[in-house]
């Protein structure tokens, strides 16, 4: 197979890039993803999951049954922020500024 063949349609990552990530030590889809961005685009690895698993399997000589799919994330399809804005009062999210006041309780983040 031509190593320049694209595997991840969204981020346009090719076989050579996946193989390079494997060569540098990554051996799970998630670890390859963070090195290459493969599977991070709008389709969220829906098309490339088994293609990448196949490459890992062949490169490392590990059976396909031992190579898990990547972590699948919410939202399960691209969703407009306007469709996510709920009516409930915000509770779990605070602002950076509200935490930065130089009072004596000195928690800090970021």
């Amino acid at each position: 197979m031509d190593a320049s063949t694209i595997v991840c349609k969204c981020e346009e990552i090719n076989i050579a890039e996946i193989e390079l990530a494997i060569k540098s030590g990554a051996n799970t889809f998630d670890d390859i993803k963070r090195l290459t961005r493969c599977g991070m685009g709008p389709c969220q690895a829906k098309i490339c999951t088994n293609l990448v698993r196949q490459i890992i399997s062949e490169s490392l000589e590990v059976p396909l049954s031992e190579i898990r799919p990547p972590r699948l994330r919410m939202p399960l399809k691209p969703t407009r922020i306007s469709a996510l804005v709920g009516n409930e009062v915000s509770s779990s999210v605070i602002s950076v500024f509200s935490e930065s006041a130089p009072q004596e309780d000195d928690e800090n983040h970021g």
Binding site: L76, R80, S82, A83
Partner: peptide
């Protein structure tokens, strides 16, 4: 409507692109 995720209490969130 598409299932897009779950809430802490186990409810399932579905969205039609306008609301969830």
């Amino acid at each position: 409507h598409t299932m897009i995720g779950t809430y802490k209490d186990g409810r399932i969130g579905v969205s039609n692109g306008q609301r969830t």
